[in-house]
Write a protein that binds this DNA or RNA. Sequence first.
DNA 1: CTGATAGCTGCGAATTTCATCGTGAGGGGC
DNA 2: GCCCCTCACGATGAAATTCGCAGCTATCAG
Lengths: 161, 161
Amino acid sequence: MVPVATRDKNGASPSVDAVSKAIIEQLQEDGRRPYAAIGKAVGLSEAAVRQRVQKLLDQGVMQIVAVTDPLTVGFRRQAMVGVNVEGDTDPVAEALAELDEVEYVVLTAGSFDLLVEIVCEDDDHLLEMINKRIRSLPGVRSTESFVYLKLRKQTYTWGTR
Amino acid sequence: MVPVATRDKNGASPSVDAVSKAIIEQLQEDGRRPYAAIGKAVGLSEAAVRQRVQKLLDQGVMQIVAVTDPLTVGFRRQAMVGVNVEGDTDPVAEALAELDEVEYVVLTAGSFDLLVEIVCEDDDHLLEMINKRIRSLPGVRSTESFVYLKLRKQTYTWGTR
DNA sequence: CTGATAGCTGCGAATTTCATCGTGAGGGGC
DNA sequence: GCCCCTCACGATGAAATTCGCAGCTATCAG
């Protein structure tokens, strides 16, 4: 579950120096690349790379995972839902984050308070999510749905530029 | 770059059977899990797992990558941009997908034609992207931005339920 | 029946990972 | 200056994993 890195108390991000960024870039290209190959690329020994990677994982700065196009694994309907909330947005975000079908929750500035991405098996499932799980949450004032028609790009390679 | 699985001509997804889904679930928990451990979990030999994983990667069904919270690696501004298009949406989506700062492009049904997620270093960078790179694209009729305030959930574990 | 194909297992060799130890560069404290 | 402590790194050998390949079986078409 997880996600989202832990911050230290000043609100500053954990220190990620240039070398660690270079390591992250390597792993953004291929999450299974051997430590020795990464070391050669960034100028560190295998052991040093391994220790840094472990620390980045422990700190929650980075995760190494498989990602798929949901459509290919049987989820035929995806949608982004814009949500407007009455009062504090945090508890609503919290409640939404607990739903399995919800993959992504972000608090935003703009004409929606929250953006929520949901992944469903079919139209019935999607409809149920929106009506029964989202719109009926206390504090939710209104929602607007954007059903995905086609995914055109999906990358995880920030920093590789 | 890449992304998004290839489909066969009937529009059907490449076959991903239950065993491959189980393999994907294992790798969604830990992208570096050894093949032997995955094999034990799904009931296959190490070599068979390895062959299947390679095929899933080759087919583009799955990628194994490092993902980070952009904030921890120096990108302080993220936003979702809803775009409305004049005429065909495909060429606009294509043009947007080519921008480095654009991480996510999806064609949607609803009051936006496209949703685009962008990752920027700071406010100036964000402003430049929206005005100079997105709104000035031929075919873009209007945009609406949702600047991210806080990321609450981000998972990659579809199928693990 | 024959040949072709796809997917699996088993196995030995090559490579990678891992735990551990020794070293050297800071950073106080006195 | 000097000592001590910490931290990150490199080195090394043992253990674990990955890799390539050969062989087996089931399925399908002719």
